[in-house]
């Protein structure tokens, strides 16, 4: 049990997909405009990650080495499509806000990266906890980035205005703001790593 907990924990800090592995930065840059978008994207990616990790760990011995990548992609794409259908049915507003980035979870390198580097070599249980840990790590990173951007770029958190009279810096809600915030946070996490 302790080992499983360790698998879960490593995705959050030590091997955080965004700040340490620097994987899946494209959706991170694009959707981190508001906390709601960040949360939606994080949950969707986590769902796909957990499901694909489990399935791939289950079928890892039956698929031949040479065609493993197409197999992984089919599995991942299936879960992404399921996510998109469910989102369209029960949360159309979020689906519209995330737009093309929901189907693009297929090519999010966190998902394929974990399938290839972890789930194809480890047991189902371990893969499940790896998926949860990575997903939560990704979600937390998205929440941190989108929280900073929504607060400074629009003066709001989860759509609610916090301080009256605060004049938000539009640039943070625009693409350069995403690069700026992620760059500074990456630098900050590198400092933390060096201190250890």
């Amino acid at each position: 049990m302790k080992k499983l907990f360790h698998e879960f924990l490593k995705g959050i800090i030590k091997e955080n997909p965004t700040f340490v592995l620097a994987l899946g930065l494209c959706p991170t840059l694009a959707v981190s405009i508001s906390l709601m978008n960040g949360l939606g994207m994080g949950v969707a990616a986590t769902f796909v990650l957990i499901c694909s990790n489990i399935i791939i760990a289950m079928i890892k011995n039956t698929i031949p080495e040479k065609i493993r990548i197409p197999c992984y992609i089919v599995v991942i794409a299936t879960f992404v499509t399921i996510t998109e259908l469910i989102m369209k049915a029960y949360s159309p507003a979020l689906n519209r806000a995330l737009g093309i980035y929901v189907p693009l979870i297929v090519v999010n390198c966190i998902v394929l990266g974990r399938a290839e580097a972890y789930a194809s070599k480890n047991s189902v249980m371990n893969s499940l906890f790896d998926g949860i840990g990575m997903g939560v790590g990704f979600t937390l990173a998205l929440l941190l980035i989108s929280g900073i951007r929504e607060f400074l770029g629009a003066g709001k958190l989860f759509g609610y205005t916090l301080i009256k009279g605060f004049e938000p810096a539009f640039v943070l809600a625009m693409p350069p703001g995403a690069l700026l915030v992620i760059g500074l946070l990456l630098g900050f996490f590198n400092i933390l790593k060096e201190r250890k």
Binding site: I67, P70, C71, V74, T78, A89, Y90
Partner: peptide, 25 residues
């Protein structure tokens, strides 16, 4: 054959989810 089986299972799963969510969408 392996790929075909995986794709067939994926298709079946998607068809199920689609019929379930279609009316709602």
């Amino acid at each position: 054959l392996t790929l075909m089986i995986i794709c067939a299972m994926a298709t079946g799963l998607l068809a199920g989810v689609n019929s379930f969510t279609k009316s709602e969408i």
